[in-house]
Simulated assay, not measured.
Amino acid sequence: MNAAVKPDPGAAPSTASAQALEDLIADAMRACELPPEDARGVGRLMAEADLTGADGHGVFRLPQYVRRLKGGAVNPRPRIEVERAAPGVALVDGDNGMGHLVMSTAANTAIAIAREIGIGWVGVRRSNHAGPAALYVDRLAQAGMVGIYSVVASSNHMAPWGGTSSLLGTNPLAIAIPAGDGAPPVLLDIATTVVSYGTIKKHALSDIPLPEGWLVSKADGQPITDPKRSGEGLLLPIGGYKGSGLALMLGLLAGTLNGAAFGREVVDFNADSSTETNTGHFILALDVARFMPPAIFASVLQHQLDELRHDAPLPGTEGVRIPGDRRATLREARARDGVPIPAPLRRQLDELAATLGIPTLAARQ
């Protein structure tokens, strides 16, 4: 399906409303035999990823998700099970369902446990790619919880520090802290590599060169700037050995601890459309109300954030950037003006719609 799409980096992106994206995704999921409620849930979360600027994890992933559903790699009608292993701990078995559905269950479970006893840790096995980590810690923050989340990435593109084999993923870390009613949370969502592999794929789709410092050759350690050569390379970790160590530790907690895949066991979902990935995640919820009244916490937090924001900007920068500020600004702008859709991606989506027999994005505007 993708082979017929020829990149046109010079073409200006068009826009699509979040509702049009959600509807397209939901229809595609239904065409892949997901129940209507589940299809709508996946569509809503994927459209939210696009609204908040996670362009490599929203509708961009739709053709890939459809290939894996159609190829039998993902179960369209899972029986997601939750085992309460201890008062503050639960384990979710996703039955190889769409990761968005599995992680929604895990996030809701963590919230329920934290409301009951103050803290809830939920591990996940037999899941799949679930989009950006921010989606799930944001859900916890909206419920008045501090949220911490990680996952074993759905393909390995980083070596352990000093090695040459792709044995680690971009294993992200997301943390959200609620900032009070009506205020966006303080929200950090980072890959443990300098850039996510989804960003590499976006550059490849539009034939845009990669900056040096993202990817190096496995053969000689030299920079790779041609995105079509990404298969020859390794993504570099943030902070050198520190990022590699962080990816390893998060992978052990999200994968090994849950009986999910890690290291050589990880299936590359970019290249494989028929094999179960057994993706592992963990999510932690911490109830702010167990420390102080949430309104008081929000007031103190906002005062401290304002002090940070008003610090004199370092020359050559745009000033202090608080984690989550750009995400909130993008969401407001894109909800108003639409989500940018690059021309090569729109053509992919149009081809997909024709294949599935559903209306195109243009027909939904």
Rank of each mutant, 00 (worst) to 15 (best):
D306K: 11
A285M: 05
K218R: 15
A353R: 02
D220H: 09
D311Y: 10
L62F: 10
G240F: 12
L356Q: 09
G233K: 01
G180A: 04
E37Y: 04
Q365I: 02
A353E: 02
A73V: 12
D306A: 14
G99D: 07
A134G: 06
A28Y: 06
R326W: 07
G259L: 07
S166L: 11
G198H: 03
P76V: 09
G243V: 09
V42H: 05
T52K: 10
P315R: 05
A143H: 03
L167M: 14
L305F: 06
E265R: 14
A39K: 09
A133I: 02
A298C: 03
P359Q: 01
P185G: 02
T317P: 12
P313M: 04
S166N: 13
A335G: 15
Y241H: 15
P172W: 02
C32Y: 09
A31T: 12
L91M: 14
P7E: 08
I111P: 00
Y149W: 11
I25G: 01
R327I: 10
D226I: 10
I283D: 03
V124H: 03
S273D: 15
L167N: 08
P340S: 11
Y65T: 11
A328C: 07
E83K: 11
G251L: 10
G357C: 13
P87I: 05
R309W: 06
R309M: 10
R61F: 05
R331F: 04
W121H: 13
M98R: 04
D207T: 07
S244C: 07
R327M: 15
F262V: 13
I25V: 15
L234F: 06
Q19A: 15
D350Y: 08
E81M: 07
T192W: 02
A4Q: 13
T275W: 11
A141I: 05
A219E: 14
A179T: 05
M292E: 13
R364S: 07
E33D: 15
P9L: 08
R327E: 15
L345E: 08
A4M: 12
T192N: 08
A354E: 14
A133N: 04
A86I: 03
V186T: 10
P313T: 10
R347C: 09
G213R: 08
S230Q: 12
V195W: 00
N128V: 02
E116Y: 01
R309S: 12
A143C: 03
R40W: 08
H157R: 15
S127T: 05
D207S: 14
A39M: 09
R40D: 06
V194E: 06
T52A: 03
G144Y: 03
G233Y: 02
P293T: 01
P293V: 06
R327F: 00
D268S: 14
R327C: 01
D23Y: 00
D93Q: 04
S230M: 11
P13N: 12
F282L: 07
M145W: 00
P211M: 08
N258W: 04
V216C: 10
